[in-house]
Simulated scan of single mutants.
Amino acid sequence: FREGHHVASEIVTHARRNGMGPLDFPYAEAQRIYADAVAGTDAPADLPLTQEQFRQALDPAAIVAARATSGGPQPQEMTRMIGTARARLDDHAGWIAARRGHVAAALDRLDADFDGLTRD
């Protein structure tokens, strides 16, 4: 974990310093940074990701798709959460409508009672 975090930190630092986005980062540069970062450790000497795996690890769409967790950004979970939120809003709208009806009925009774008092 420590080596992996160090490598990721070095890659991000290099990318920021050189104005690179995730999809623009050269695989060869990642290999060089990895080799430098793990030198003298028991980690494998070569970057343990193929170029395709490295690209997928940096692809925002692939990152979102891989995060299959509750509350995550994947489309299916977003659809579920939006549906839940809409159902809550519908429940709240129903409650508001019921309360407004209750208040309107109370006002009607109050007006009727007041009218009855003023006619006498």
Rank of each mutant, 00 (worst) to 15 (best):
A43H: 00
T50K: 00
P48H: 07
P48R: 03
A61S: 09
L49A: 09
E77A: 06
G71R: 05
A57E: 08
D59H: 10
P75E: 07
A65I: 09
R55P: 01
A66D: 15
T69H: 06
A35C: 05
D42Q: 12
T69Q: 09
Q74D: 09
G71P: 03
I63H: 08
G71S: 04
P73E: 13
T50D: 13
Q76M: 14
R67S: 11
P44W: 05
A43S: 11
R80Q: 08
A68N: 13
A61G: 05
D59N: 15
A62K: 12
R67F: 12
A65N: 12
G72S: 03
A68S: 13
S70K: 07
A43N: 04
V64T: 09
T69V: 15
T79F: 15
V38E: 02
R80A: 09
D46L: 06
I63G: 00
D36I: 08
S70Q: 09
T50G: 11
A65T: 10
D42S: 13
F54V: 10
D46S: 04
D46W: 00
L47Q: 00
D36C: 12
T41F: 06
L49G: 03
P73L: 14
A45D: 06
P44S: 03
T41E: 02
L49F: 13
V38Y: 00
L49M: 13
R67I: 13
Q51P: 12
D42T: 12
L49Y: 09
G72W: 02
A45T: 11
A45K: 12
R80F: 06
P73Q: 10
T41C: 07
R67P: 01
A37W: 01
T41P: 04
G71A: 05
V38M: 02
T69C: 06
T69K: 04
G40M: 11
D46I: 02
A43F: 06
I63Q: 04
Q53K: 11
E52S: 14
E77C: 08
G71D: 04
D59K: 04
S70F: 15
L47M: 01
A37I: 00
V64Y: 03
I63S: 06
L58C: 13
E77P: 05
R80K: 09
